[in-house]
């Protein structure tokens, strides 16, 4: 190849790299919707991803079923005993609920707005080791919008960060860029829970107060201060409390309630902000 041709190819490569850097800078900003090209690719790939995720989940389920048979017998017996105890507790709770309703009415408290959920299946996980995101099979057509909180029965999962017509992206709590306002359930001390990347199963809470009362085993819930997550959603439990070298900031290592490795189905809260806005004066 002559030197002119070589120079031209090198120049084209450099221009391409520069364009990519610019594109990265532009897309680094928070975006309300995904780009047209992203949308087309994501929508086309979604059925294939869903099929493979279903296949992987089927294989995983089959293997764990085989392993679980002997365990299930033992668990069945202990669960029967627990169920009887729960029945008794449930009857008592029902009584308390009725009492609570009566007292609320007496004091004029408004009823808390119940959340509306959209159930979604996880169809793909991001392929790299740097981000923690999953793709779900529900999008704007199903009422999903950016920044909606995502939960499971185990607790908070994360929030919606990108929405296409039939598919959305969820940033998990373990993502490096994720931060959630949180409270220690017992002491009400506040802080921010941050993800540490998918290679760490623990989250990290940084407390606003150095004297925060927190100990191993304490439950953490969302504070609702960031306005994305409703207050009171379970995040996880403290496994270790540390103080920074100079003693200025207190941290806690937190084991999340959700098992992000086996996430298959999630619930998207679709009316939290709408409900909040209605309540505003």
């Amino acid at each position: 190849m002559n030197s002119f041709g070589r120079y031209r190819r090198f120049a084209a490569a450099v221009v391409t790299l520069v364009v990519l850097v610019v594109l990265m800078g532009v897309t680094a900003r928070e975006r309300e919707t995904v780009m047209l090209l992203e949308r087309a690719l994501v929508e086309a790939a979604a059925p294939i991803q869903a099929w493979f995720e279903g296949l992987a989940a089927g294989i995983r389920g089959g293997l764990s079923d085989i392993r679980a048979i002997s365990q299930l017998r033992r668990e069945n017996e202990s669960l029967r005993a627990k169920a009887e105890a729960y029945d008794a507790a449930l009857r008592r709770l029902r009584e308390l609920e009725i009492e609570n309703e009566r007292l609320r009415a007496l004091l004029g408290f408004s009823e808390a707005v119940p959340f509306d959920y959209v159930v979604a299946d996880v169809i793909a996980r991001n392929p790299d080791n740097w981000f923690s995101r999953v793709t779900i099979d529900r999008g704007s057509r199903h009422g999903i919008a950016k920044d909606m909180p995502v939960v499971t029965s185990q607790g908070l999962v994360g929030r919606v960060v990108g929405v296409s017509t039939n598919v959305s992206f969820v940033q998990l709590l373990t993502d490096r860029e994720c931060g959630v306002g949180a409270l220690v359930q017992s002491s009400r001390d506040a802080g921010i829970v941050k993800g540490q990347g998918s290679q760490s199963s623990l989250l990290r809470m940084m407390f606003f107060e150095r004297e925060a009362e927190v100990g191993e085993g304490d439950a953490l819930v969302t504070s609702g201060l960031g306005e994305i997550y409703p207050p009171g959603l379970y995040i996880g439990r403290v496994v270790e409390v540390t103080t920074e070298q100079h003693g200025l900031i207190k941290y806690a290592a937190v084991r999340p309630g959700v098992d992000f490795g086996s996430l298959e189905e999630v619930l998207v809260i679709v009316n939290y902000r709408a409900a909040g806005e209605e309540g505003e004066p």
């Binding site: 990519l20 594109l23 990265m24 897309t27 991001n126 392929p127 793709t135 960060v161």
Partner: peptide, 29 residues
Amino acid sequence: GFLAGLGAGLVQDLLFTRYIGLFALAGAL
């Protein structure tokens, strides 16, 4: 190699990443 990395990275960026160009650039290199 450059084109393969660019193409594969771009697909990965468009499908999964917020920062479009991140894996395309790294892949191309």
